[in-house]
């Protein structure tokens, strides 16, 4: 799974951090989403889908990648 985030759409709800804390963080400076890794392990796929669905700004995009 390849993850991208769009900071312009981020509302700092923190849903992604609660759902997948090894993948997402929040910047101390502006509160916007910070991506910790863009190709997380396959076992995180379900959490990533939940994080994307819960994101109120639609800031998280997931793409399946051939491994």
């Amino acid at each position: 799974m390849h993850v991208t985030v769009d900071q312009d759409r981020c509302c700092s709800s923190g849903q992604c951090v609660l759902t997948a804390p090894t993948v997402f963080d929040q910047s101390d400076e502006d509160g916007l989403v910070v991506l910790l890794q863009d190709r997380p392990a396959p076992e995180l796929a379900a959490k990533l889908r939940t994080a994307a669905a819960l994101c109120p700004g639609g800031a998280i995009t997931l793409a399946e990648v051939a491994r």
Binding site: C11, S13, Q15, T19, G57
Partner: peptide, 17 residues
């Protein structure tokens, strides 16, 4: 977790955490 009690979109509750 998919509830809308805090709203959704750019106005979703700032204080939700």
């Amino acid at each position: 977790r998919r509830h809308l009690a805090f709203g959704f979109g750019v106005h979703q509750c700032l204080g939700q955490p």
